[in-house]
């Protein structure tokens, strides 16, 4: 009975949403604000990657809010899962093959993550993606070694320093320029590693912050055995 009601409801919702969405033209040229961003990204921000330019430069304040949301989620998860008695991860050890190969792959994954967030303004990727890649490397170590521990104090120091770097760069824009998060550094030659002013600096800070946050989050979630 519940299934029938649910399916009927979904058919009504689906019919009207598809009916509405199909009125949006598909695959036509970029108009409006997207067109402006595409045409003036290199001139206004110095970054080659328009998506990064939008996320970090045009909508940098929004990204600061996004980082705050992620921080709040990590903190809230730690508060919800807090236990005085102290918890442990699963006692099951992985097999020898998994352990040996993850020991070899782990530094390479960390290197890839660093590459992705350092080159955020040149190639697809950026701070969030790079941080997530680093956290997956740590997850691999967590599930292969039961004794692998992360230093929580160091993680929270990295996280706070990265967050403070972001806000400090923002205030530097306010002091030396005209607005919060203004791009005050020289743009350099578009397409080179050291270009685009503050964009790579902010993305490196975001990469460290997201990596540390996601690592702490995974550690909290995996420690569920009393």
């Amino acid at each position: 009975m519940r299934k029938v009601i649910a399916i009927l409801l979904l058919i009504i919702i689906g019919y009207y949403s598809i009916d509405t969405i199909l009125k949006i033209p598909f695959g036509e040229g970029v108009k409006g604000v997207g067109k402006h961003y595409l045409e003036s990204t290199i001139k206004e921000t110095g970054a080659v990657n328009s998506v990064t330019a939008i996320v970090v430069s045009y909508r940098g304040f929004d990204t600061l809010g996004e980082v705050t949301v992620l921080f709040l989620a990590a903190t809230g998860l730690g508060a919800i899962l807090y236990d005085k008695k102290g918890k442990k991860r699963s006692l099951q050890n992985a097999s020898l093959i998994v352990k040996t190969s993850s020991k070899i792959i782990y530094p390479l994954i960390a290197l890839l993550g660093a590459y992705v967030f350092v080159h955020g303004h040149l190639t697809p990727g950026g701070g969030f993606q790079g941080g997530a890649i680093i956290a997956t490397g740590v997850l691999l170590m967590f599930i292969s070694y039961r004794s692998f521990e992360t230093n929580h104090k160091a993680l929270s120091i990295i996280e706070s320093l990265a967050g403070m770097t972001f806000v400090t760069i923002g205030f530097a824009g306010l002091i030396y320029g005209t607005s919060f998060l203004q791009n005050i550094l020289p743009f350099g030659i578009p397409g080179e590693l050291f270009s685009a002013g503050i964009i790579p600096l902010i993305y490196v800070a975001v990469g460290f912050k997201v990596g540390a946050e996601l690592t702490a989050l995974l550690d909290n979630l995996l420690k569920t055995i009393k």
Binding site: V55, D62, E66, V69, L70, L72, A73, I80, L81
Partner: peptide, 16 residues
């Protein structure tokens, strides 16, 4: 990109 990060946060808190 923003929405994916928010979705991750929501999923993590829900799982906890």
């Amino acid at each position: 990109l923003t929405a994916i990060v928010i979705g991750l946060a929501v999923t993590a808190v829900a799982l906890s």
